[in-house]
Amino acid sequence: MTTKNTEQNPGGMRGFFVRLGGLDRRWIFLAMGLSIAVPILLKLRFPEVPGPMARATFEAIESLPNGSRVLLSFDFDPASKAELQPMANALVHHCASKGHKIVFMALWPLGKQMADQAIKEILLEYHGDKYEYGTDYVQLGFKAGNEGVIKVLTTNIAEAYPTDASGAAVSGLPLVADARDLGSFGLVSTISAGYPGAKEWVQYGRESMKPEARLTSGSTGVQASQLFPYYPAQLNGLLVAVKGAAEYETLVTEKYPVDRNSERLEQGRIRMGPQLVAHLLMIALIVLGNIAMIASRGSQGGAR
């Protein structure tokens, strides 16, 4: 009896690993919580080496003539803000540093607020002296209709957006009044968390843009796999998740550094610290899970 019990619940190291297989998931939650909280509190930072997609995005914007008209679509909401706002901030700073005229819009209801934040914290904070509403930037806000909005934009901006987000007629805003359709923009960039987003911009917007115009996207990690087929033919640049944001931020701030509140443009890199520790924890968990499986197989074999 004693022998049998020992075989079913082996002691020592093997027993420890067998019991580990049935670990209460709350311990895993705690470990994950700590692996994110501690690097945030310690402000762990690691150097980023930009990959080809981040470089392509940077080049797409960098190679536009200064002062080009660009359209930034904020197609995400607070749920994915942690993943996407850093790249949105870097994108706005990059466009503004090049003096591009920026039109903001959103296909997601709460995307307008995300754009408002980027305008307030980046555009007006670092470039407020040279950016005047109506001539240098315009906030069109959210428009319901998903890909239908993009379809209308391909023919007539004023039809999709007769007014800006504050209710002012676009005919009185020179930046938009002079733009007829998507063909009037040198760059369209969507920061996208799903539907409607990057895929719809490629499917419905790309062909109405000028051939030399650029279409780029920032995307959450989860939906990136659906966008890879479009890069680099239809999407000239693609930033994937916090990693993409961190790489792009590195490129942007190296060329266009800011003199105050620089942390606002380092959010991607700041978030890479917790990401590193969390990923290492996941690898450790997977390894432990497999050791537990092997240990329990061994103990079952012993019992037989």
Partner: peptide, 10 residues
């Protein structure tokens, strides 16, 4: 993040 970790472990 928490659910991904527990799913990966299991």
């Amino acid at each position: 993040a928490f659910y991904v970790a527990s799913a990966a472990f299991r």
